[in-house]
Design a protein around this nucleic acid. Structure first.
Lengths: 236, 236
DNA sequence: CGCCCAGTTGAGGACACTCAATAGCGGTGG
DNA sequence: CCACCGCTATTGAGTGTCCTCAACTGGGCG
């Protein structure tokens, strides 16, 4: 309920040629670049669960790439209730607002351990001058975020609790494939699909009882995608 | 319920220097451009209410600027229910997906009479080469759409029916200021805030009875912003 | 061992949905 | 000009789902 605000651990400057996700479309260009020209260094950030990368309304001149882990973007309502607006995973970009001079629009908070690349906007601008194609890739990132936001809205704000939770599980299990997907806290799941923690808990418990979902503690071991899909589509 | 699919009226080629919204940030550059170099012409589109500009999954090489009117972007769920994902008004851009080679992600449908600029992606690419600053403006558009999507989600999918409708009215009355805001059909309003037509109807009727809203037929004459704001924030 | 937090379960009630009937408006044709 | 039709909005009654409040459970950790 109460967001914990700890400080991120900032590691030293990183050479992007050694970065694990340098193959990711956005920064393929960084590899070819002469880093001696860059004054503002690209840095590494490590976050543990619950830590914030940035806060809503902060002004920053940094955008980020998620190298590993899962983060949530949150917004709030006047009454204090919170809503998770999007999830970010491997190689997603966040904080793009900074590129157009706007303050960050969300609280960006780690759900798992996260490793993040922090890129000053100046680097992008400089790089953009040398490689205009970078803009294509930035626009693609933006479009991806937008598409994500739209499906998030249609998927997780309509239908019964059962449907929404099923859709969420499907999405999570697809995203993480068969890696040890952590079943996030009930409160977080509630904030994703617009339900209370109790309702989420009840729904998941029922899925478990029906054998659609098997989990060991907080890790999902397996789920029946086919049944989930039928539930998600309202067929049962 | 059943979307009517009529064909848009395409007017002839347009000189952007005469365009009413040429001052809008995105295409300020077009004014200075030598149009004789452009092979693909920029065209005008006129839509009446209910007409579609494009359909979900269509592939197109055109993006659009709304010169006047209001449009809705829609997405659908497997069970056939529909959700309005965003509203667009004066000088908003739509169909940006085309710029990154993706099919359109929504049905784009006119709510009022609309006048639209249709711009082939080729023009943007050509212009981008000559004026890299155009990319800044494109990114700003994208960011705007994204921010809109996020607030749409937090505002219109949480809280009671009363709160949601109040927020919608606030947003609409702000957007259109004091121009004759049409109170859209109940079904559309329901698809915006995730409620049934009956619930929207009941809620609006009650607001009317309480004097918060005055309307003549389908046009809003006035509304008590202060009270609406209190309702929106759950204070009554 | 016992605390603390997260998840689970229960009971009761509020709210929105469903189904259904009525009212109002605009157009069309006799 | 009026009667009729079709559509949308409105209203009503009854039901179901989800929320609220509250108690209980169970694992992790000092």
């Amino acid at each position: 309920m109460k967001p914990i605000s700890l400080h991120a651990i900032w590691l030293g400057e990183t050479k992007c040629r050694h970065c694990a996700v340098r193959a990711s479309a956005l920064f393929a260009g960084l590899e070819e670049m002469d880093f001696s020209h860059i004054h503002q260094p690209i840095k590494d950030v490590i976050l543990s669960p619950q830590q914030a990368l940035y806060r809503m309304h902060d002004r920053g001149n940094t955008l980020f790439t998620l190298r590993g882990g899962v983060m949530k973007l949150m917004q709030y309502l006047p009454d204090g209730s919170q809503r998770i607006v999007r999830l970010l995973k491997d190689s997603d970009a966040l904080g793009l607002e900074a590129l157009v001079g706007q303050p960050y629009q969300h609280d960006a908070i780690a759900l798992t351990d996260c490793e993040i690349c922090a890129i000053p906007t100046g680097v992008i601008e400089q790089l953009g001058r040398e490689r205009p194609r970078l803009y294509q890739e930035l626009m693609a990132r933006w479009q991806q975020a937008l598409a994500e936001a739209d499906t998030w809205l249609t998927q997780f704000t309509t239908g019964t609790a059962r449907q929404r939770v099923a859709r969420l599980l499907l999405r999570l299990s697809c995203a993480e494939q068969d890696s040890p997907l952590p079943l996030f806290g009930r409160e977080d799941m509630g904030a994703m699909v617009g339900l209370t923690t109790e309702t989420v808990s009840r729904t998941i418990a029922e899925l478990r009882r029906q054998g659609v979902l098997r989990d060991r503690g907080s890790i999902v071991e397996g789920c029946d995608r086919e049944v989930l899909r039928r539930i998600a589509d309202g067929e049962e």
